[in-house]
Design a protein around this nucleic acid. Structure first.
Lengths: 149, 149
DNA sequence: GACGATAATGAGAAAGATTATCATTTGCAA
DNA sequence: TTGCAAATGATAATCTTTCTCATTATCGTC
């Protein structure tokens, strides 16, 4: 059992900064999110939230996750599999991208400023300002040629 | 009313080449797809298919689209909006990417070899072989400063 | 600290997209 | 042409997400 109260989690603070009403459920979900460094879907978030406060409803998790996304606190991701997954939104620093292991489904984050600016340039040249980049590459572990072992 | 019979469409030929049973419905759907250069969802494909053969079922469209994807004939895309969209898979030439107009939802295709090789290089450096790239950028039309009109 | 307007929550119904079921029909090889 | 495995149509079922509405909680104000 974790301690969601005492000092508020970073996301709960963010929540307050955006002028959102800070309810017990939102505090719990914010805490769970601050405590996660992966890309959970709503079911998984619900499971983790219930650990902290058993009387939370999955409807509230859906609502909160949507609210947080609309307020730039969360980012929604689609890695296939039919359900949306969420992660804490990037701060000032540039976007990051995702490499998905084709065999294990594991998600590996990476950043690349060259990629950032190339995309920006391409889009600008087409007469647009870049709003969002949705990029995930699927890859398969490189087979080393005869390393023995 | 189009002519789906006579000579088979390119996709119908592909279908036969892959050893798939070429039913009337598959011939129709292949024809409709060969005839499309946009990114229709299943509902839209169904509408177009019914124009050609009114007794086709939406269940068959779902099934066929999945079959074609599994056989590398179609590619599934996700542009948001909750439904999958499909397009004919690229042949030999490199991947293409999608720019989505944030205001109109219009999808604009583009290619960029520099982007191709940059992604390939990034992934390789991480110890992976690139399998698939899922990239779509959302952009907003650049506002020209005072063009009057 | 209590009050009240207003917004959030819980539980379950509803919606929307996709897949499964199963009796009937069809393609295709012999 | 015949037969069999596979495909189809119609609809039920499933899965994720949103909506409804009665109840409850938050937060500014006194």
């Amino acid at each position: 059992m974790k301690e969601p109260n005492s000092p508020d989690s970073p996301l709960a603070d963010l929540c307050r900064q955006r002028g959102l009403k800070l309810t017990g459920q939102r505090r719990t979900i914010a805490f769970v999110l601050s405590d996660s460094d992966d890309h959970p879907d709503v079911e998984e978030l619900y499971r983790r939230a219930v650990e902290v406060d058993p009387r939370i409803s999955i409807a509230t998790v859906y609502r909160t996750v949507r609210l947080f996304e609309e307020n730039g606190i969360l980012q929604r991701r689609d890695f296939g599999g039919g359900r949306a997954r969420y992660e804490v939104a990037d701060g000032d620093h540039g976007d990051h991208y995702h490499l998905i292991d084709a065999d294990t489904g594991k998600v590996i984050e990476f950043e690349n400023t060259e990629l950032d600016s190339l995309l920006e340039g391409i889009v600008r040249q087409m007469g647009y300002d870049l709003v969002t980049t949705r990029l995930s590459v699927v890859g398969r572990r490189t087979v080393k040629p005869r390393t023995r072992g």
